[in-house]
Design a protein around this nucleic acid. Structure first.
Length: 569
RNA sequence: CGGGGCGUGGCGCAGCUUGGUAGCGCGUCUGAUUUGGGAUCAGAAGGCCGCAGGUUCAAAUCCUGUCGCCCCGACCA
């Protein structure tokens, strides 16, 4: 393909609307253009990338026994009412009416449709397992679309749904998908991790997220290099700390001290010259109609998901300062577990603390030398804190590390949630009617493209991983007016594209600098430069986008050299 | 939905406070000179200043409404 004919309008300046790197670069490099908030057009280069991602996904879905289908985006309300999600989904679902005033939704996902499809035509265990998938646009009327393709309102997604006879079957389907997903992200040359995830509202008992590593990722992940444990911070367990054998300090008498104006943990640290580890903080939550206090060490963060799971409540909201002072008569800076009027839930670490400091439940006062057991007894002691770097791994006790990632895949065991709600059943061996055991497995296709950029770029632009690059190679003749250069460029172009390689030839009458800048911005992995310097020795230059050095290659060896590079990546 | 900000040629912005008929850089087009990391010179095209009302002799500028976009928060593949 000639550069002069490719539709990829590049921009020199960063459009002001773009906040994160992938959004900026995809706009600047002429891959995407916005049509409205969270809705984008994919230009030719982007579409090529998307097709590559889709093809890898397709191949692995097929290999795992999946069959591709195409289903409606416009879905009738009745199906959603049947599953109960018409109400549940709320404002996040795009809704519309037809001319007869019948209600429809633009599909945010396809559980209802697929369950209906299978229910209509699958009636026997002999037809199971069944793995069906689709790749298409999905719609969510996000409260706030942002980050370009990361959180759009229209996005491309692959979803596979599995239907099994029993839990064992589901386990097998789940395992197949887990492996297929791993292959997919490996094939795309993306650095990723699989993490245990909270299965959240969708239900089910097992769930993993596939995270593409990127410092800009929205999810924090803890992981262990020793044993491959990895989990979303929300989910990561903190093992109960072992008493490390060091002698526990003698409990000293409780002491109340005047601490005017001291509110935060930091204030306490400074005014009393103590480390955060010897302070205990108390957070008040409104949990289904009751105020409760969560107590954790001063340097730790509370994990609300853990607290919520512990309390088994539906609604958990942190109380604001006004509520606290009104209801408890103390300002938030002076809260503490001693003599508290609220139920106290303490993090495990509190048990190991001796003579700590906390608020006195009286404005302007703190308590020193507080000890659990002697001075207060919590309702429950549990794991309530966020895991952080350096914490022991819950599996092997080695030190955990943390990183950030972008969630590009998520696999769930659904069980019978939808099949029961929608009465989707089959007859088992014994003629018994049973609901399908389902699983669902998603990959954000358009998001993966953005994640790939987020992970692979430098100050000059995108660096596409070879397997998903829009083109693999670009040939840059320095001066298009020199027939010697152009003839050679075209000859190499013919040879390489003749063997199936995707090649761009920059035939534009631009200065070399412009061509280099555009090539870098666009992120084509390999570049062959044809210029007068090397040509004198009958050589051309080869440059890998992800490396700085340029290598001189003899003209007659160039095809072989390119093939050798391609075989390595 | 709450809080903040912004809509002025394709992109990035100035002008608005103090109303007087729109400007800069980049890009685009023409020509010349150039040609190894976003060239130079000369010329040119392109904007009813988001939209709708209002105030005024006069509105990009002041007022009201409306639409859209961005950021922070609750939500989330």
């Amino acid at each position: 393909m000639k550069s002069s004919e490719i539709f990829n309008p590049t921009l020199r300046e960063v459009p002001s609307e773009a906040e994160i790197v992938s959004h900026q670069l995809l706009l600047r490099a002429g891959f995407i253009r916005k049509n409205s908030g969270g809705v984008y057009s994919y230009l030719p280069l982007a579409f090529r990338v998307l097709k590559k991602i889709m093809n890898i996904v397709r191949e692995e879905m097929d290999r795992a026994g999946g069959q591709e289908v195409l289903m409606p985006i416009i879905q009738p309300a009745e199906l959603w009412q049947e599953s109960g999600r018409w109400e549940v989904y709320g404002d996040e679902m795009f809704r519309l009416k037809d001319r007869h005033k019948r209600s429809f939704a633009l599909g945010p996902t396809h559980e209802e449709i697929i369950t209906t499809l299978v229910k209509q035509d699958v009636h026997s265990y002999r037809d199971l397992p069944l793995l069906l998938y689709q790749i298409q646009n999905k719609y969510r009327d996000e409260i706030r679309p942002r980050f370009g393709l990361m959180r759009g309102r229209e996005f491309i997604m692959k979803d596979l749904y599995s239907f099994d006879i029993d839990e064992d079957g589901l386990d097998l389907s789940y395992k197949k998908m887990y492996e297929a997903y791993s292959r997919i992200f490996e094939r795309m040359n993306l650095k990723y991790r699989v993490v245990e995830a909270d299965s959240g509202a969708i239900g089910g008992n097992e769930s993993h997220e596939f995270m593409v590593m990127a410092s800009s990722g929205e999810a924090e992940i803890v992981y262990c290099d020793k044993c491959h444990y990895a989990a979303n911070v929300e989910k990561a367990q903190c093992p109960a700390p072992e008493p490390d054998g060091a002698k526990r300090a003698e409990a000293r008498p409780l002491e109340k001290i005047h601490t005017p104006g001291v509110r935060t943990v930091e204030d306490v640290m400074h005014s009393l010259a103590v480390p955060a580890e010897s302070i205990v903080k108390t957070l008040i939550y409104w949990a289904d109609g009751e105020y409760v206090g969560a107590v954790i060490r001063g340097d730790r963060e509370l994990n609300e998901v853990k607290l919520k799971n512990l309390l088994g409540c539906n609604e958990l909201l942190i109380a604001d300062e006004n509520q606290v002072s009104q209801v408890l008569g103390v300002s938030v800076g002076s809260l503490g577990p001693v003599g508290a009027e609220f139920k106290v839930y303490a993090d495990q670490e509190i048990e190991l603390m001796d003579n700590f400091i906390c608020g006195a439940n009286e404005d302007g006062y703190h308590l020193m030398n507080v000890n659990l057991g002697r001075d207060f007894v919590p309702e429950t002691i549990a794991d309530l804190r966020n895991a952080i770097k350096g914490d022991p791994c819950p599996v092997c006790s080695a030190e955990l590390d943390t990183t950030r990632g972008i969630e590009v895949g998520h696999i769930f065991k659904l069980g019978t949630k939808y099949s029961e709600a929608m009465k989707a059943t089959f007859l088992d061996k014994n003629g018994q009617e049973r609901p399908f055991i389902m699983g669902c497995y998603g990959i954000g296709i358009s998001r993966t493209m953005a994640a790939a950029v987020e992970q692979n770029h430098d100050e000059n632009g995108i660096i596409w991983p070879l397997p998903i690059a829009p083109y693999q190679l670009i040939i840059v003749p320095i001066n298009t007016k020199k027939t010697e250069q152009m003839d050679l460029a075209w000859s190499i172009y013919e040879q390489l594209s003749g063997q199936g390689l995707e090649v761009i030839i920059d035939d534009r009458d631009e200065r070399a600098g412009v061509k280099f800048k555009d090539a870098d911005l666009t992120g084509i992995p390999l570049r062959i430069t044809i210029g007068p310097k090397a040509l004198q020795e009958n050589k051309v230059e080869v440059k890998k986008r992800w490396e700085n050095e340029t290598v001189l290659i003899a003209v007659e060896d160039i095809v072989e050299e390119i093939n050798s590079i391609l075989s390595q990546y």
